[in-house]
Design a protein around this nucleic acid. Structure first.
Length: 437
DNA sequence: GCGATCAGTT
DNA sequence: CACAACTGATCGC
């Protein structure tokens, strides 16, 4: 009935080739050291990290996508049974080390899969990213944009990572006699730690496995596993709790910093308020001075930084795009259609609700109807299996609550929620259907 | 031992 | 509160 062609961050059987955008565990669920279902394409850095995450994995199955250049892959068209070429380009996603977006061209059209991504708009890096993307797209039209819609809601507003990193530095400076612990995951936030180390001229403690990762990533001097040489430690997020901090504080005054979490989310908008309250300007002004080390004074200067516990600060350092950045990105890409790749968010709204007007198809925002698009050229149909919601806002809501995925049939109508229980949280299976017209 | 799934955690 | 990312217990094989 339906044969798979390619899968992105999805590891179920049935595709000819597989792609991994980055090595976070919520994208590798279903992947293991005994992987043998086919070639696995990823960035060079991801490939380098692979043996560490999946020791024993058959490395001969890995294929490296160098960022910024087109790769051609010969596959068998599920519809015709003949050879077909898929072209793919990896583009830096600025999410975590090795993370990429994937741009596909083939007989199915042009698809852009963002994976998890951060699209900061002001830095030099951002400019390079922008021009790289535009160059890659050139005169292609993106038929479907698979979007990291984690924060696809106007209530999600936070500053650039540069600014958030400086907030962390300021917290550390204003606690000169404290130990500092920062919660991080197994990959990501290296730039934050680098920034701290650089600004304060201090080494940063990490746990032994993390030090190995740092070495693989090319950091050789700023991290240490010796507790005696620094008061700043980066610890696994799961070991970071109120309890931990209270225990630590019985030994030595310690402040915890959580770069993430969501207490910093702006309050939900009501009515016809300005859609984009500019919190960023307030971050800038509030953090320009310091020197006040008294707690109450500091508190006033915190701006978006939330002190949600006696010993813990939450800083809005995010590796996902905020709403404005998502908007900026969609404006740039101008896809024909958009699908979210995350639907577990409580603030989940179909990206088209906010961004439908930015799409080329410019469909009425209520009738999120995929039929026309499916009929392109009258003979080729793209079936997509993904966690993304389809249909009306109401069914999106229903889907979300039940944690289900949606599946599209050839006419683009939502048909099956049945197998959904077995499916992974994220990822898309990009398949080509039997043509029947 | 391995993979999948669930229930937690910040 | 809430998310992404992760750990650990449990189950079937």
């Amino acid at each position: 009935m339906e044969k798979g062609l390619i899968s992105v961050d999805r590891w179920t059987e049935g595709s000819q080739v597989y792609f991994l955008t980055h090595l976070h565990s919520d994208h590798t669920r279903g992947l293991s050291s005994s992987w043998d279902r086919g070639l696995l394409f990823c960035s060079r850095l991801t490939a380098k990290l692979f043996p560490f995450k999946f020791p024993g994995l058959d490395l001969s199955l890995l294929r490296i996508l160098d960022v910024g250049s087109w790769h051609s892959i010969s596959l068998i068209s599920p519809s015709s049974g003949e050879k077909t070429v898929v072209q793919v380009m990896a583009i830096d996603a600025h999410h975590c080390p090795g993370s990429v977006m994937l741009l596909f061209r083939g007989e199915f059209g042009c698809l852009l899969y963002t994976g998890d991504f951060r699209w900061e708009t002001s830095s030099e890096k951002a400019n390079i990213g922008r021009t790289t993307l535009l160059k890659a797209l050139k005169d292609d039209v993106v038929d479907i944009l698979y979007l990291d819609n984690t924060y696809c809601n106007p209530s999600y507003s936070f500053p650039s990572r540069d600014i958030a990193a400086q907030q962390v530095v300021d917290i550390i400076i204003s606690h000169p006699d404290h130990d500092i612990i920062i919660g991080i995951d197994s990959l990501g936030k290296e730039e934050l730690l680098y920034h701290i180390s650089h600004k304060l001229n201090i080494k940063i403690w990490v746990w032994p496995e993390r030090l190995q990762t740092m070495h693989l990533l090319g950091f050789h001097d700023i991290f240490t596993t010796k507790t005696t040489v620094t008061r700043v430690r980066a610890v696994p997020r799961y070991s970071f709790s109120i309890d931990t901090l209270e225990r630590l504080n019985t030994i030595h005054s310690t402040v915890g910093i959580m770069p993430s979490g969501l207490p910093w989310v702006a309050k939900p908008l009501k009515g016809n308020e300005n859609l984009f309250p500019s919190l960023i300007t307030s971050y800038k002004s509030k953090w320009s001075t310091n020197g006040g080390t008294r707690t109450d004074k500091l508190k006033e200067n915190l701006g978006s930084v939330d002190k949600f516990h006696k010993h813990i600060y939450s800083v809005p350092y995010s590796d996902h795009s905020c709403f404005m950045e998502i908007q900026e990105f969609i404006n740039l890409v101008q896809p024909t259609n958009i699908r979210g790749i995350v639907n577990s968010s409580s603030c989940y709204v179909d990206p088209l609700y906010y961004f439908g007007r930015l799409c080329r198809a410019n469909q009425p925002s209520l009738g999120l109807n995929y039929k026309q698009e499916k009929r392109v050229e009258g003979k080729r149909l793209i079936a997509v299996q993904t966690k993304s919601n389809v249909g009306s806002g109401k069914s999106s809501e229903a889907n979300r609550k039940q944690g289900r995925t949606a599946e599209l049939d050839i006419s683009g109508v939502q048909v099956s929620k049945v197998n959904a229980l077995r499916q992974v949280r994220r990822g898309a299976k990009i398949a080509q259907n039997e043509s029947s017209d």
